[in-house]
Design a protein around this nucleic acid. Sequence first.
DNA 1: TAACATGTAACAGACTTTGTTACGGGAGTA
DNA 2: TACTCCCGTAACAAAGTCTGTTACATGTTA
Lengths: 144, 144
Amino acid sequence: MSLSSRFAVGIHILTLLEINKNGVNSSEFIASSVNTNPVVIRKIMGLLKNAGLVKVRPGVAGAVPAKELSEISLFDVYKAVNIVQDQELFGMHENPNPACPVGRNIQETITPLFSVAQLALEKALGNVTIQDVVLGILEKEQIK
Amino acid sequence: MSLSSRFAVGIHILTLLEINKNGVNSSEFIASSVNTNPVVIRKIMGLLKNAGLVKVRPGVAGAVPAKELSEISLFDVYKAVNIVQDQELFGMHENPNPACPVGRNIQETITPLFSVAQLALEKALGNVTIQDVVLGILEKEQIK
DNA sequence: TAACATGTAACAGACTTTGTTACGGGAGTA
DNA sequence: TACTCCCGTAACAAAGTCTGTTACATGTTA
């Protein structure tokens, strides 16, 4: 089971805005790089826009970053594209039996433990920026 | 989007084995505590068994832990119930365009970054044991 | 006004999870 | 042996999400 690829696509989009900064980054152009439908890109772009990561205007072709890419972390993108809610990375079974000591306490016992793990994940994502991804790609291109 | 509740159920099962260690932990009994179908429990129990965490025998009612609960971490359970594969916590879009510098490099650039985050998550899970969960539940029972 | 891009609703197909029923086969007891 | 209980597993259905598509309204520019 994997989390939605919206996250990876969001990173792809932002990275592409930089690599192709001299071109026009329309949803169609981006879609051809990601290899998907332009509507998929527009939906994700909308999420990035709501999060204040990109600027897009209806009717005007092309999106641009709303911040320095070195100030957009993978965590920002992860939050923006909404693949996981707070405290909800790990699914919980509903309505365990309140007549059982385990059933009536398991949720509040486990929740903070799950939270710690989720926060560790999110912290790791906060340590990397889109700029890092851009540099990684440029390096790989140099080598080739 | 949340990861499968099999993980939470697996923890519930192992915890219950301890709390109800003087009783017979049949799939039906456990199912009533978890509030699900016995078959769901048997399936998850099979995964725990394959991972060497519990002992169960066909035809014989009841499961018992195969190790000390202080030596079973949440990470062990997480691996056992198979909610996430290695390097696959975050979904990736397939077949990005190889004609684009971003498309042809994004996967290998992102994969190690995702890996670091996933490992941080898993490490956090490794720091907690089922015994900790058992103690947490006992504490909550004392207070009430 | 014409041409083009974004924003969004609506829907379909694919996939996974969760819950069920059904049944084969092992284990223990009378 | 016959009976009963339970685990193991296959098969299937319902529900939910993701991903991709079509269609169309709205906004912008020439």
